[in-house]
Simulated assay, not measured.
Amino acid sequence: MTDEQIREYFEKVDKNINESGYHLTNVFATAETPSFCYSTGIFKSFNIPEIFISSLPPGLCSEIIENYVEAFKESKEAKRNQRLDFLTERFPVYLIDVPVPSLKEYVLSSIKIYGDEEYKYLQVIYPDTKGNFPNDAGYDYDQEIMGEFNN
């Protein structure tokens, strides 16, 4: 990217944070990494952790993150390590804590926006097509788990 493209991109990030409270970044899969999506601005705007999602399509990521913000922005406390049936109607999910340093190669927009400020991330953990979660017998999906998941 050119310096001008980078400047324009971060203007868009700032605009989205100012208008809706957050920006979503979708990154497509490469030979080395699966696709992923992450939020920037949720922690600053709503005082709840940012969200990281591995290997789901952008539209579904947007749905989950939008529902997450709506569900927890008033209480300021996201439920962790609990089966949640309301972030998408398609399947239940779990939210787990992820140390920000574990995401340093992924959440570049957040690193730039937050700088030295403190912020937190949760990862959305979801089942495979048979309803099995990681740690269940027969789990079969390429979701990259960045924190500790214990269901």
Rank of each mutant, 00 (worst) to 15 (best):
Phe133Leu: 02
Gln123Asp: 07
Arg80Cys: 11
Ile65Trp: 04
Cys61Phe: 14
Gly115Phe: 07
Pro99Asn: 14
Ile65Pro: 02
Gln82Leu: 02
Lys130Thr: 09
Leu87Gln: 00
Tyr68Glu: 01
Val100Ala: 14
Gln82Tyr: 00
Tyr68Lys: 00
Lys76Phe: 13
Arg83Met: 13
Glu63Ile: 13
Leu60Trp: 06
Val107Met: 08
Cys61Tyr: 15
Phe72Gly: 07
Leu122Asn: 06
Gln123Leu: 06
Glu66Ala: 11
Glu63Lys: 13
Leu108Lys: 10
Cys61Trp: 14
Leu84Thr: 02
Val93Tyr: 09
Pro58Tyr: 04
Lys130Pro: 00
Gly59Asp: 12
Leu56Tyr: 02
Lys79Met: 15
Pro101Cys: 13
Ile125Glu: 08
Tyr68Trp: 02
Asp85Tyr: 08
Pro127Val: 13
Tyr121His: 02
Leu60Pro: 06
Tyr68Asn: 02
Ala78Ser: 14
Lys112Cys: 11
Phe72Tyr: 15
Ser55Tyr: 13
Phe91Asn: 04
Ile125His: 07
Glu63Cys: 12
Glu63Gly: 10
Lys130Cys: 06
Ile53Glu: 07
Thr129Met: 05
Gly115Thr: 03
Glu89Cys: 03
Lys76Glu: 13
Ile64Glu: 04
Tyr94Glu: 03
Val69Met: 04
Tyr106Thr: 03
Glu66Thr: 09
Glu74Thr: 10
Leu108Phe: 09
Ser62Val: 04
Pro101Leu: 14
Tyr106Ile: 04
Val107Phe: 13
Asn81Lys: 06
Phe86Glu: 03
Phe91Pro: 01
Val98Ile: 06
Asp116Glu: 11
Ser62Gln: 12
Ala78Asn: 06
